[in-house]
Every structure is written in C-alpha cells, then in structure tokens.
Design a protein around this nucleic acid. Structure first.
Lengths: 352, 352
DNA sequence: TATATGTATGCAAACGTTTGAATATAATTG
DNA sequence: CAATTATATTCAAACGTTTGCATACATATA
C-alpha cells in the first residue's frame, strides 16, 4: 500500500493537516517541524496522491489533447505539434491526456465526454475537419465550463471559440512570390479540394501574389493550369502532374499544396526524362523533414506547428486562469524553406 | 458547478448509493428506479467524476507513456507506435497520459515520479537509450508496485523487466537476403554506432545472412566496406556513402541502417552521376512513408511499431491484472518492403 | 401465521488530500 | 504582569464517488 499523509503524521506525531502544509511548504509551519516531516516523508518514499488532491482542489493540472484518428498521427505536422504542446505543458506544470477519436458516429463526443469526466482543466482539439466536428458541436462545448482551443484553419462564425492555425494565405503568398522572383510567369497549381478552408486560403495567397506581380491568366488557362486533387491522398500529386504534363498549356513552375504531392510530382516529371528545376520548378507546402532527402531537395513552406502547439498551450493556460484572450483567432506565420527544387539553391549538401 | 450524484439523489428522492448503483447498472436496483434515475441524470447532464471514483477504487484506468524529448517525436516510428498505443488503449478502456522527458539530470525520474503521483495503472517507457535510463533505474522501478513495459531493443539482464521491440536481427537478415537473392555478393554497409544494441543485432543479422550464403569477406574488405556512422544524425548517410565511393573497394550494393541515411546515400550516388539501382542497389531500414516518394523509391525494412505499441498495451493490461507474462522479452517481426532501389521492382507508380 | 428467502434501498465509512476556523503556545507590547 | 499579537498546531468538514452492512419490504415456503 502506498504511503499517505496519515502514515507520516503518525510517524512524526503530528496532525495530517500539518503534514500537508509542510509538504506544500506553506509558511505557517515551524521550520524544524518541516524538516522533521520532510525527513520522514523521504525515508518512507512518500508520493502525494494527485487524485485525492484534485478531488478537493477541483483541478487536475491536466490538459486534454484530442485528435482524429485519420492518419493525422503519421503526419510530420502532428509530431511538431505534439512536441510543442507536450514540452510547453511540461514547462507550465500541466500533464497531458491524449485521446484519439475514431471519426464516425459521434466519436468526438465520446472522447470529449471522457476527458470531461477526467476533469481536465482545458482541452486542445486538433485538426478536425468541419465534417467531423461541426461548429454547432463546438458552440455547445463552449457553453460547458471547460475552456478549449481549436487547432487548425477552419471557418468559424462563432466568436466564443478560440482558434490557432498556420497562416495559409501568407504561406502560399511567400511560395508564389519566390517563384515570381525567380522569373516564373506561368505557374501551374496542384491544389487540394477547394471546399477546404485551408485550400481556399492558400489559393487566395497564390492569387494575391500573382495579382501583385501583375500576372494574369485567361479563364481558360486557369482551368488548365490548376488541378484539384485530394492533397493528402497517395497518388494525387502524380496524377495531377501527369495531367499537367499532358495538357497543351505551357508553364515553367508548379506550386503543389502538400509536400507529399510535390514529391510525387517531381517523380512524375523525372519519369518523363525531364529535369527539376531546369524544366520545371517545384515548390511544396508543409516543410516535412524528408524534403531535404529528395533529389532535388524540395523548396517548401514550413508550417509552424511546433510554435502553434506551444502557443496553444499558453493560450489555454490563460483561458483556464479566467483571462480573456486579446484575439480569439491566431494565425502563425510559416517560413519558406529554400532548397533545390526551384533552382534558387544549387549547393548539394544533405544536411540542410 | 458540475452536477453530482447527490444532485440526482435529491431530485429523485433516493439515496446516492442507489444512484451510484443505477449509474453503474448494477443488478440490485429495481428497473423502474434505474429508468427514473437515468432520466434525471440525462436531463441534468450528469458526468461521473472519475477523479472521485479513482480515489475510492484505487485505479485510474490510465496508462502513462513516457518518451525522451530527443527528437524521437518527429520520427516515423514514434507516430506508428503512438497510434498503436492510443488506439489499443482506447479500445481497452484506458486513457493515455503522455509525458516527454528532457534528458538530463534525472529528467526521467521526475517524469516517472509525476506519473506515479497521478496513480496511472501502468507505464510504457519508450525508447530510452541505455545512457538515459540505466538498468538500475528500471530495476528500482520494478520494485515499486506499478507495472511497466519498456519499448525498444536494449540489453537487459534483469528478468523482472518486460520489454518489447522490433526484431532487428531478423530485419537485417531479410534485407541482406534480398540483396543476395538479387545476385549481390559484395555488400557495403552504412552502420550505426556499434555500441548500440540495436545496431549490434542488425549487424548480427547481416552477418548471419552472408554466412548462410557462404559469402565471406577478408578482414581488410570488411574494414573498407563498413562505415560506422550515427545513423540518426543528418549528413551521416551522405558522408558514409561518399567515403565508400572514394574507396578502392568494389561493391554493388549498400545496406544502410536507417532510411534517412539511405536517402542521403542515394543522393550521394546520384550526385556522382551514377544510377540506383543499376550501379548500386540500396536498401534502408525503418520503413518510413517517404521511402516511396524518393526516386528511385526505397526498398527497406519496415519496423512494426504500430503493432509493437498495440501489443505493449495488451501486455501491460495483463500485467495490471496481475498476470505473469509468458515471455518478458518480445520481438516483433519486421517486414521487407520491396520497391525500386534494389532493382527488384521496376514499375513506377507512386502509391506503393 | 410464522419463518425463511430474496429483492430493493438506505446508512455510513472510506479513499487521501486541502483548508477555514478554532485552539494552544510563544513572543511582543504597554 | 496582564493584554495583545503572532506563530504553530489541531479539528473537522469537504471533495464525489463506491461498497459492505443493515434494514425494510415483498414474496415464497413450511
């Protein structure tokens, strides 16, 4: 049986309340008594029971992290996010309770319910697409007493919901500008599904950059230059690229909205005996580690999910403390990683 | 304030104990009363307080997962493992408490201590190298009452410690045999640090395959054919490969002990204007997703960490139930993924 | 009808802490 | 030295459950 405050109290001949205060290093207990109590606690191998403590203090110092089970976990972004979250949680004294949710009939409700039952102090909801957790569910959650933060770009009309995400507009803008700076004027696009808010924002950034540079395509060109694919499905990049190569439309660069698709696109180009970046420049989106391992290595936009995770925890802490966040929509700026696939970098070390 | 059993008791005019029994669907409660209680619980939005429950039942239904913070999280293997663990934990009714540990002065002790304080029912210790958690610490932990499982190949002399890992010997054996089957007789090796048990086992598998095929190298050749590098450090594969290409020793294939290094090796070969697999066959180790995105796609050994995570949870459950495991060392068989980098597969789809 | 069996509910203690209020002891003050 | 204040400690209730035991009532048995 684990040793409790009572055991220490008995051994030292003092009341449990005194022992409790001593263990929490409260001021109103004599230094000598403290020492004696600590001594005994030490030798007995005392470990405070956080369960009991939580029951009376009404807080668990635990944050709940909920993720959809749809292969997100394998994604680079998730690892970064988890790292950011867990390190910052650790730093701020929180434990982390992790749940994956089988998307489907109300999976998310059971997961959130479970965490509610565990009385976590706050909740981080990662990357749920609109269709998996509808806004109405979030609004409902906001009415319960537990504070939460949504991670990932999505459309939200309610102001009661706090969200943090990558600035997809800015990322696409940077990538496109990079291509423009390198002299490209005809830029093809392998996109994601355009009903996805993430994709919408990236397209907007892409268009903004073109417009600013005074580049304009005919409606017909746009139709031929843009391939709408599911950018998280294997084979999408290959299909999109081949379709582009087969079209009559001329272009010198491709902006691909995910690194995985970009890598497939590069393969597809190379398989036709063509060269990247000489025949076509390719830029991706995500910033996955393996980008540097490709040949040519991939120029891409790095989504700042480590930072996002970290910041999410900080925001959540504020929320838990009852503070009101200055902004309830936060977008973090992504960085352009320049490597070889656009020709801007020719050096061939593998460490970058 | 959250609604409790008392609230329901008051509303239904019945004792809390009856309400408790009803909520847990115990048999000794009249059906009609149950219905009435459930009804009230429903409308009041009752959520059982697991903290309170845990205090009396003395179990939390929570598993603790402890990981070193040393960039493991970004590794493919970790994602798989986490997925396996979390899905299986979910299935078995456990919650998951996740902790990263800053390696350093007793980092691991504080993390484990924290989880102990949280009274997790069991512990999964992921991938700690010998130098981060020494066996003595594990033995000490085994003497406390909390059951745990160590994930990852490492040398352990104590029989009180339960371990599960990838069968590195078998993986290397499979990879080497694949090369031998393809007719290769001179196989170079880009290894990890040979003081690492993982590496030792892989080397043993490599040698076993060679020996079985009746292939034997002179001591001098061995020295020239094997490059010892830190296979998880960026640039190691490139350095190792260049060094091999610069040597006079002839060889037709390279076995690289990590996918990352293998990818770098391929780049290094290609940068000399040589071809993979025609000039050199390359086989990796890990089974990372991005292997299929390389050009040529990478033949590799897939470490079964999804399965390992899953199995670890199952074993832990048994341990918690007080059962004795049939084996306290479990090695899971890895699979060879045959793609293009050895020439065994020439088709060029990107989905495989 | 009295006794035994079973079923449904209530009572009260327990889990291991924290914490406000009460008390006892020591130190300070006029 | 008595009165006041500060310090150190104890008391007891509370947090929200679970669960063994006692009790009440209904039903079956002799």
């Amino acid at each position: 049986m684990a040793v409790t405050l009572h055991d220490i109290a008995e051994k030292t001949g003092v009341d449990v309340s005194t022992v409790s205060r001593a263990m929490n290093n409260k001021s109103n207990v004599k230094e000598e008594t403290k020492q004696r109590i600590w001594q005994v606690a030490q030798t007995l191998g005392y470990r405070p029971n956080r369960v009991a403590r939580s029951l009376v203090t009404q807080k668990t110092n635990t944050l709940g992290l909920v993720m959809p089970s749809t292969k997100c976990l394998g994604h680079t972004l998730f690892s970064w996010m988890l790292e950011g979250i867990s390190l910052e949680a650790e730093k701020l004294g929180y434990s982390l309770s992790f749940s994956v949710v089988d998307i489907g009939i109300q999976g998310e409700k059971t997961a959130i319910t479970k965490l509610e039952e565990h009385r976590v102090d706050g909740l981080i909801l990662g990357w749920f697409k609109e269709k998996y957790i509808e806004e109405s569910t979030l609004v409902q959650l906001a009415q319960r007493e537990i504070p939460f933060i949504v991670i990932g770009d999505r459309h939200l009309s309610s102001r009661d919901i706090n969200m943090i995400a990558c600035d997809n507009f800015l990322g696409a803008y940077k990538a496109t500008n990079h291509l423009i700076d390198l002299g490209h004027e005809k830029i093809a696009l392998i996109s994601g599904r355009t009903d996805n808010p993430i994709v919408k924002n990236r397209l907007a950034g892409f268009n903004a950059a073109l417009e600013q540079a005074g580049i304009h395509y005919s409606d017909q060109s746009i139709k031929r230059l843009m391939k709408e694919e599911d950018f998280s499905a294997a084979g999408a990049g290959e299909r999109g690229m081949r379709s582009l190569l087969d079209s009559d439309e001329e272009f010198t660069a491709v902006f691909v909205l995910s690194d995985m698709c970009a890598a497939e696109a590069i393969r597809a180009i190379q398989q036709r005996g063509l060269n990247v970046p000489n025949d076509y420049a390719v830029v991706g989106f995500d910033g996955a580690e393996y980008g540097r391992l490709l040949n040519p290595s991939l120029t891409t936009v790095k989504q700042p999910y480590r930072e996002i995770g970290q910041k999410a925890v900080r925001m959540l802490k504020q929320l838990i403390a009852g503070e009101v966040l200055p902004k309830n929509r936060v977008w973090i700026e992504p960085q352009l990683i320049i490597r070889e696939s656009c020709g801007a970098q020719r050096t061939a070390t593998a460490t970058q």
